[in-house]
Design a binder for these strands. Sequence first.
DNA 1: CGCACCATGTGCGCGTCACGCAATTTCTAT
DNA 2: ATAGAAATTGCGTGACGCGCACATGGTGCG
Lengths: 193, 193
Amino acid sequence: MTDETADLRTRNSQATREAIGHAALRLAIEQGPNGLALVRVHDIAAAAGVSPRTYNNYFSSRGEAICAFQADQSKRAGKALRARPAGESLTEAITAAVIELYTDPEPDRAGLSMIMLTPELEGEALKAFTMAEGPLADAIAERTDGDGDLFPAVTAAAVAGAVRVAGRRWLEPGTSEPFAAILRRALSHVLPD
Amino acid sequence: MTDETADLRTRNSQATREAIGHAALRLAIEQGPNGLALVRVHDIAAAAGVSPRTYNNYFSSRGEAICAFQADQSKRAGKALRARPAGESLTEAITAAVIELYTDPEPDRAGLSMIMLTPELEGEALKAFTMAEGPLADAIAERTDGDGDLFPAVTAAAVAGAVRVAGRRWLEPGTSEPFAAILRRALSHVLPD
DNA sequence: CGCACCATGTGCGCGTCACGCAATTTCTAT
DNA sequence: ATAGAAATTGCGTGACGCGCACATGGTGCG
């Protein structure tokens, strides 16, 4: 892995960040999409084993904490694309990278529902998915070597949008199709043949 | 116009909504992208000539008020596409509709900068642009008569993303190219030839 | 033409939150 | 082992979101 653990200190703090995020999402799921107001900062902090003030050092809103996992996942989009072999076409590489990134384990239905289907979280959820765009655009630009200057960013945005739509689709009741399949179909509409 | 003025009462309340939104955006611009915290609810309400409590009846956060104009504009995307003649191809129709919608007057640079370049507004800004997706997807579905079930939503998301990217591009310092031209180029990357 | 009705505007008050500040604990590096 | 930085924490403050109740004004009925 290219992850050289960076700093041991940094690692530790990322661990607590994850702990807080995980606790926040878990509590939110327990209360359901309509009881988000009942998830108090105090409870999140307690569940994560930190002080409320510390929670606030890592996140500046409950929504941010709840969506942290999704956001962190999206941030890895660039790395995922770069990990694809150079032999693949851009479309193949993006498709494979995105599918691998978002289905490493099949996502948690409850968690994704909470994030994508709760109105109060809409803004944070969009931020979380949109976070993939920057890194992804950079990685695309590297692969295409200055195609059009707008192409990488636009494609990245389209891909992020396709992922979101695929997620919504996968969450619809009575969907047995695996997420990867839906994702592949969604991406086929925005990527060059 | 299909706008039948609906109700006179409704009209009035939409007027105050606009007034509040306009006031919020104006005050935000005055303070610049770094002084958003200084834009108090009290000031917005005062500038709009309503009570702070009334402001809160229309918007549940400052960001929502500031981005209201952009959000309302995006909501008209479906209508804009439906207004295109049936003879046009889907790509032509979408391109024309989007350009017309977002450049009816050339957008206000200060306002768009505030919305798109202020970190605290990122979530709300994304919501504002994403609001075009639903209506747009419906309108696309009507034009294509059940192409693929994912196609309309994915395309709408890609278009909304392209608009966002085009906006960012247009805001970059030293850009003299008209927004419509950038928009057209951006859309060409996500729409079928 | 008047009356009852509903939507909107407003004042008040409560609970929560985000965050600056400063003391304290914890951990790393030499 | 020790100096020093980073992280955790407590406290205090200002603002906010919103429920509640009341006033007001436009609307549609009889």
